[in-house]
Amino acid sequence: MPVQCSSCGERRAMLKRPKTGHSLCKECFFWAFEEEVHQTIVAAQLFKPGETVGIGASGGKDSTVLAHVMKVLNERYNYGLKLILISVDEGITGYRDDSLETVKRNQQQYDLPLKIVSYEELYGWTMDAIVKQVGLKNNCTFCGVFRRQALDRGALMLKVDKICTGHNADDVAETVLMNVLRGDIARLRRCTAISTASEGEGVVPRCKPLKYAYEKEIVLYAYFKKLDYFSTECIYSPNAYRGYARTFLKDLESVRPSTIMDIIHSGENLSVREGVKMPVQGTCSRCGYISSQALCKSCVLLEGLNRGLPKLGIGKHHRLHDKILTKQPLTEAEERKLRKSVDF
């Protein structure tokens, strides 16, 4: 027997909401989903009228739904925002080419301007080339560090005031779990923030309008709305440890569907004991990007690639930062240590 929509009481329910256990029909679901994102935007005061907002667009489900909903809400509620899609081209043949095609179609479907920034253009290296040098073991470190900066650089070129990303409730909950498992108290404290304040030159404030939206609902929203999105695993395998956390989260969700929100609630209410050491945020003395060291991770990784010593940016080699800054050559012993193929 069909279940009735708990909201309109008329139409047949098409999904069960994991957050609350209610059953909704398509129309009421669309309305509730969009309204909730709107309420999040209003309650957290994410934007101001007249701002230019960059939407980090990868072509995947989250950013496609984000772009769609931002466009809908901006018009429905007269946010007065100028929206721009920003995509990063990591230079991964067969993965990013295809997803960028999706983003280009999205650009036309939503009639939003699109800016693509590529690793090659910014750093002189594509991910394909990086993988050739470092192999498949630490490539995700390069990709992650470079992407974060690439989005910022793209945003600066376009003079946007804010960037919003498609991180959803599952992503945030997973990050909370990850940081507990790693004992990373500094990130544990930061990771549930819905937006980051401007952290200095070269860093654009970021926010996550989908922070309280379940992945399940995002996928169903995209499916029912027939949104055009791209879904393929990155060909350069993902972080294994994160995989454990993700599986655990999905299992938890199947035991108690509200768990994802419950974890975020936990994260939002943790407080750290006084006297626990926190890293001090400074800026990179080479590129001006935020960094807790003299050189930001991105510059160190790049230096390593360019010198043919990829291990430089992996692990802790802070002692060598002064040498890099002053462009001094490394000693033979130092080089030997770093040249060995990265392997752990």
């Binding site: 990868s58 992945e215 996928v219 499916y223 879904s231 695993e233 993700r246 999905k250």
Partner: peptide, 10 residues
């Protein structure tokens, strides 16, 4: 019957 993975792509 439709099976949709939510586990990758974003």
């Amino acid at each position: 019957v439709v099976f949709i993975s939510t586990l990758h792509g974003g």
